[in-house]
Each structure stands twice: as C-alpha cells, then as structure tokens.
C-alpha cells in the first residue's frame, strides 16, 4: 500500500508543459554552488529516459528544498513535487545520503530530530520548563503503519 510511485505525487502530463527556458536552474542556489544537476536537467532526463535512470544518480540529492524553481516557473510546473516523488523512489532503492538516513532514523526512534545531553541544564539557566515528553511508542506505531521501516529497511 505504501510503495511510492513518482507519478502518484506528481502529475506526469505537467512534464510536457516545460518550454526549457531554464529559469528554474538559473534561480537554483545549488547550480550556483557547483556543477550539479539542477531542476531543468532532472526534468529533461525524466522526459527522455523516464525516472529509472535519474533515481540512481546521487546528485539527485543536491537540493536545498527552497522551492524557488516552482515559484519562478512561467508554466507553473510543480517541480518540488516531482523532485519529492523522485527522491522518495530513490530512497526506496537505497540511493539515500548517509546523513539524511541518520536523521530520519533518529526522528523515527525518538520523535525528535535534535537531541542533546545537557539540554535540561541549559534550559534551567533560562528558567524554561522541561521539554514536553512524547510517547515514542505512538510515533513508531504510526511509522510502522505507514511502512516507513519496511521501505527504508530500518530495524524496528
């Protein structure tokens, strides 16, 4: 039930609306920083070869999720949705950066993305109440139900 297909998140017919003005890649902060893929290249690869090849490319993950590509697209193609769909599929076949996997695993197991040893001591210095406890069982129950552990091959 939870197999993420790229085209279930993104309407494939939108790909044909692209008129290759390259405004997305021109605005993309990541293409400014180096020779990475950029939204336009990914979109064109999807048009030419389908999603199969691009989801095996580690460069797919070079993105800041700032969504300026969608903001500026004159054809209003929802590029972030395409990229989300592609990365969901990439994560399933194991193309996932180490650090991303580490963070989502931490969220799944503790319910928080940042943990610290001296948190409560630091908070007391500012007269702040302790961080509210959450039920870890509830979080992992929900995630077991969505198929998170199975899809990412994480021990549960």
């Amino acid at each position: 039930m939870t197999v993420q297909k790229v085209w279930s998140l993104f309407d494939r017919s939108q790909l044909y609306e692209c008129y290759e003005c390259s405004k997305c890649s021109g605005s993309c902060p990541v293409t400014l920083a180096g020779d990475f893929l950029g939204p336009r290249k990914i979109l064109l690869k999807c048009l030419q070869h389908g999603s199969g090849r691009v989801i095996r490319d580690p460069l797919l993950w070079y993105c800041t999720t700032c969504q300026v590509c969608q903001d500026r697209c004159p054809q209003e193609i929802n590029i972030p949705e395409l990229l989300t769909g592609l990365r969901n599929k990439a994560a399933k076949i194991g193309n996932i950066p180490e650090r991303v996997k580490f963070t989502v695993e931490k969220i799944a197991k503790t319910g928080r993305s940042v943990l610290g040893f001296k948190v409560e001591r630091e908070r007391k210095r500012y007269n702040l109440p302790p961080v509210v406890e959450i039920s870890k069982e509830e979080i992992s129950k929900i995630l077991a139900e969505t198929g998170f552990f199975k899809d990412l091959k994480i021990d549960h």
Binding site: T84, A91, V104, I107, G147, F148
Partner: peptide, 23 residues
C-alpha cells in the same frame, strides 16, 4: 503540548512522503 518533530520537509518528506504527512 506533547508535539513531536514536525518532521522537516528537507529530509522526512523527501524520504518517505506518507510518514511525513502522518507525523
């Protein structure tokens, strides 16, 4: 209130959409 991690659009949503939405 007992809120968990939001979870972020920059990792959880990219990795597993349904889990992101459910949390």
């Amino acid at each position: 209130l007992p809120f968990s991690c939001c979870p972020p659009t920059s990792n959880m949503k990219l990795v597993h959409y349904d889990s992101w939405l459910a949390l």
